[in-house]
Nucleic acid binder design. Structure first.
Length: 408
DNA sequence: TCTCCACAGGAAATTGGGGGTT
DNA sequence: AACCCCCAATTTCCTGTGGAGA
């Protein structure tokens, strides 16, 4: 029997360096931002509370890595100087309200879940946790935009000392958000009085990305394995899109996989191009599969219309298709208002395109919905959702005239 | 020019469910 | 068992919008 499929060529030296949760030891491109953080934090060594700060910037701009790295240094220095300083990093990705965030912090540190009590009680327990940690405590709340407008926590923590919720402890809070509108929605007066500094992480340009990639390549791949044209290409493709380092690294990683599959001894620019397509397709699939049933139905309605070539379509047309599909799969159909909301959410995450145009014969304004992602890829994802199996025929109706029925 | 009406979109009320205390 | 807290999704209700056709 041929076992060559199990062979591993030595392209990668250390794949972990390319994984999402790898924290680089240095980011020279973010040295300025780091110094800002240091300035805010080092006040703790003078006996003052650290500054409250907001880090602002899109995903993949090194916000989390910079903070973690800086906090790490801060702790080491504090330790050397015998300062009673503690730091707490918390990602709010799984919580969507201040209440849940406070509960999670309490649960992480005491082991008991405080949910069920009033918000006030939960906050008090959270402050108890802080007081136990040290004389000065820096709290980092990553992905804080997740809590939306239930942001009491952001007003409460900076005031805790004045109000007497914490007695001996000085609190500093660092919020990280990739949604700039989140910051605008905070009460402007509270924002300026409670938060001393916002640090903006601008998108990397192609040159920055290239430097970042080169450092990773050195660690992740064997020497000379990555062709010299491949790196700038990854950087350029990502810079053209969003200047996202995560994306650039994903391209590179996947390019390595492609090279392995093809039995190539080098990672070439052709591999990068294949990788880009794969990564993008995978991103679409991931974002769709995480949606709710109603989102899926709304999307399926647009896809169904797209299969027939009936896009862009008005909300009403999408809604009619939606009700039919909902009936097919035996799910309660919801109001048009709500379906429109779902369509708008799909627009927000880049799957649909909802353009608002002046109305036709009846005036007003109307949305015209179209698919922003590749029809074939989206259709195959829709088909893979078992819940929608009873509606496949309807969605594919008209496909044979359009010769796009053969996706799997 | 005026009215009409399908749609947009904000706000409030409702529904239902998860987790508590007493 | 009766009652409290938090929350997401949805419905209900309402006010605007603006070109076509009277």
């Amino acid at each position: 029997m041929d076992h060559s499929a199990w062979d591993v060529q030595g392209l990668f030296a250390d794949e972990d360096v390319l994984h999402e949760h790898y924290t680089p030891t240095e980011i020279p491109e973010r040295e300025d931002e780091k110094q800002e953080l240091v300035k805010g934090l080092r006040r703790a060594f003078r006996g003052t509370a650290p500054k409250n700060m907001f880090l602002l910037g899109k995903t993949g701009q090194g916000k989390t890595a910079t903070v973690r790295h800086t906090l790490q240094e801060f702790s080491v220095v504090a330790n050397e100087r015998n300062e009673d300083i503690a730091t707490l990093y918390h990602s709010c990705s799984k919580q969507n309200s201040s209440y849940q965030v406070a509960s999670a912090i309490v649960e992480n540190h005491t082991g008991s879940d405080p949910r069920g009590h009033s918000q006030q009680v939960v906050f008090e327990r959270m402050y108890d946790v802080f007081e136990e940690m040290g004389e000065t405590v820096v709290v980092v709340l990553d992905e804080i935009d997740n809590i939306g407008d239930r942001d009491d926590l952001l007003y409460d923590i900076p005031r805790a000392r004045n109000v007497g919720d914490v007695e001996g402890t000085k609190l500093g809070i660092i919020g990280i958000t990739n949604d700039s509108s989140f910051l605008q929605d905070l009460d402007p007066r509270a924002k300026s009085s409670l938060y001393d500094r916002t640090i903006q992480f601008d998108a990397y340009d192609a040159h920055d990305l290239e430097q970042i990639l080169r450092r990773r390549v050195k660690k992740a791949f064997e020497d000379g394995v990555v062709d010299d044209k491949a790196i700038p290409l990854c950087a350029a493709l990502a810079a053209r899109d969003m200047g996202n380092a995560r994306q650039a690294i994903d391209y590179l990683y996947e390019a390595g996989e492609v090279a392995l599959e093809e039995g190539s001894e080098q990672v070439l620019d052709t591999h990068v191009r294949t990788a880009e397509e794969r990564v993008e397709r995978r991103n679409v699939i991931d974002s769709i599969s995480g949606l709710t049933t109603q989102d899926h139905l709304a999307l399926a309605a647009v896809v169904s219309l797209a299969v027939c070539g009936d896009v862009p379509a008005r909300t009403r047309e999408v809604y009619v298709e939606y009700t039919d599909i909902a009936h097919d799969v035996d799910v309660n159909a919801i109001t048009m208002k709500r379906v429109r909301d779902h369509l708008l959410e799909l627009d927000l995450i880049g799957i649909l395109d909802g353009s608002k145009r002046a109305g036709g014969s009846r005036g007003g304004k109307r949305y015209y919905w179209d698919l922003r992602t590749d029809l074939g890829a989206t259709l195959s994802v829709i088909q893979s959702i078992s819940r929608l199996s009873a509606a496949q025929d309807r969605i594919l109706a008209g496909a044979e005239n359009r010769r796009i029925g053969e996706f799997t």
